[in-house]
Simulated scan of single mutants.
Amino acid sequence: MARYTGPKAKIARKFGEPILGPSKALQKKNYAPGMHGRGRKRKQSEYALQLMEKQKVKYIYGILERQFRALFHRAAIKEGITGENMLKLCEARLDNTVYRLGIAPTRRAARQLVTHKHIVVDGEVVNIPSYSLKPGQVVSVREKSKSLEAITDSLSARNAKRYNWVEWDSQELSGKFISYPDRDQIPENVNEQLIVELYSK
């Protein structure tokens, strides 16, 4: 089960934004990593910009190349705008929904909770982070995991952010995936059209 485990600050500096969570590195070193990071910026080609955008989405949602290609194919054959469909499918992933509900502070932590069988979907334990939720499905914390420190800490520090496509019940420690979000509801700074152009070559 491969995933990116390298330095988070390096990725944040590469894209100039906190892709994998808050990073102090951006304030201290607001230039790209590597020995040429401070050097004169060359104008990037169209392909380079498209590739960077694809890599950004993969890092944000923790998806590897083969999985991302399959997800893009699903988005392309689905009715609607391909780029928006792709982001909707990314948002419908189980690990992402656990993060959006506030059960975990980051997507990485959400992924770990899912793989360690702390999360149930419609009453059944699901340990696949890429599991694609359908509208109406209920995601909750497993009964014997409700007192887990990582979960209680995350829920007590749960910020005021609310997302229209998920509903949270603090008594039951469960949330419902109401619907796929509209593009303007997804807060991620992504130009999905560049990814569509990259795959349509």
Rank of each mutant, 00 (worst) to 15 (best):
residue 115 T to P: 00
residue 81 I to M: 11
residue 162 R to P: 00
residue 31 Y to E: 06
residue 83 G to N: 04
residue 153 D to Q: 14
residue 81 I to E: 11
residue 49 L to Q: 14
residue 27 Q to R: 15
residue 38 R to S: 10
residue 94 L to F: 03
residue 180 Y to P: 00
residue 48 A to W: 04
residue 95 D to L: 01
residue 11 I to A: 06
residue 26 L to W: 05
residue 27 Q to S: 12
residue 141 V to L: 10
residue 84 E to S: 09
residue 184 D to T: 11
residue 177 F to A: 03
residue 64 L to G: 11
residue 29 K to R: 15
residue 200 S to E: 13
residue 28 K to R: 15
residue 176 K to G: 05
residue 17 E to Y: 07
residue 114 V to A: 08
residue 175 G to P: 05
residue 163 Y to M: 09
residue 106 T to H: 00
residue 165 W to L: 06
residue 10 K to M: 15
residue 185 Q to I: 07
residue 189 N to C: 08
residue 60 I to L: 14
residue 6 G to A: 07
residue 112 Q to Y: 08
residue 30 N to G: 14
residue 32 A to L: 13
residue 187 P to V: 07
residue 125 V to C: 09
residue 192 E to R: 02
residue 76 A to C: 08
residue 184 D to R: 12
residue 195 I to P: 00
residue 140 S to K: 11
residue 16 G to C: 04
residue 114 V to Q: 04
residue 75 A to F: 02
residue 60 I to Q: 03
residue 58 K to C: 13
residue 132 S to I: 10
residue 74 R to F: 07
residue 35 M to E: 14
residue 180 Y to A: 09
residue 171 Q to G: 12
residue 176 K to V: 15
residue 143 E to S: 14
residue 181 P to G: 06
residue 1 M to S: 12
residue 41 K to T: 11
residue 199 Y to E: 12
residue 143 E to Q: 13
residue 160 A to Q: 12
residue 158 R to D: 03
residue 111 R to E: 04
residue 186 I to M: 15
residue 186 I to Q: 05
residue 188 E to W: 13
residue 17 E to M: 15
residue 177 F to Q: 01
residue 27 Q to I: 11
residue 119 I to P: 00
residue 42 R to M: 10
residue 90 C to Y: 05
residue 172 E to M: 14
residue 157 A to P: 01
residue 43 K to S: 10
residue 193 Q to A: 14
residue 131 Y to F: 15
residue 52 M to H: 15
residue 80 G to C: 08
residue 103 I to P: 00
residue 184 D to M: 10
